[in-house]
Amino acid sequence: MTAPPRHPSFLELDRAALGLRSAELDQHVETCARCGAYLARVMNRSEPIPAWARTPPAPDTRVGGWRGWLPRAWPVLATAAVAAVLALVVVVPKSPVQDGPAYIAPKGIPAVAVYIKRGEQVFVWDGQASLVPEDLIRLKVASQEHAYVTVAAGAPAWTVLFAGPLSAEPETALPTSWRVDAAGSEEVLRVIFSTEPLPADETVRLFSEAPRTEKLWTTELRLPKSTSP
């Protein structure tokens, strides 16, 4: 009777998957179904790449554990949602061609809601409140007429922060949040809803033009910033 073989640690297996192999480990993997199956899983390089990993995040953004804080804030957000439904309106940030504050529009128009996480507190942007450095902002979008959403910042040289399909749900919470820095007096974001993904070579132009056509709809967010809440 022989002693059961000692499995290598997962660290050792992961290193092997990245190319750091030893004869001893190779020998073990050949005869161990468990370790062989694990290596096959982590070396599978053919899986589809999700939308969030197709576009590199901008260097000045940091992604937080968005699904971590949003559920904890759910009672507050649910109350806000009920209030919005009762009023039969959705708050839509101002359009690029209007100068007034956030306005109220009927349902059906693509809508963007901004959630702000400040410390442990999460609240919906009311169209006027100022951001402060280190706030995390995250968007929830909705459109009945479009299938894709693209978000960009950094006018006039627009940088895409997110691009991906809308979910089948009535609202899509974008899987990325952005941390507010101390630079400038406002954050300007543009959100383009489209029926098809935006062509890469036309993205910057489209964000500059902020089109509102049958197939493309642009919403602009201008979020003022201050140094204290």
Binding site: L18, R54, P56
Partner: peptide, 16 residues
């Protein structure tokens, strides 16, 4: 590029 990095590292990160 981020896509190559995803294919190389993400499966083992997910398992971990």
């Amino acid at each position: 590029d981020i896509q190559s990095a995803y294919l190389r590292y993400f499966p083992l990160i997910r398992e971990k």
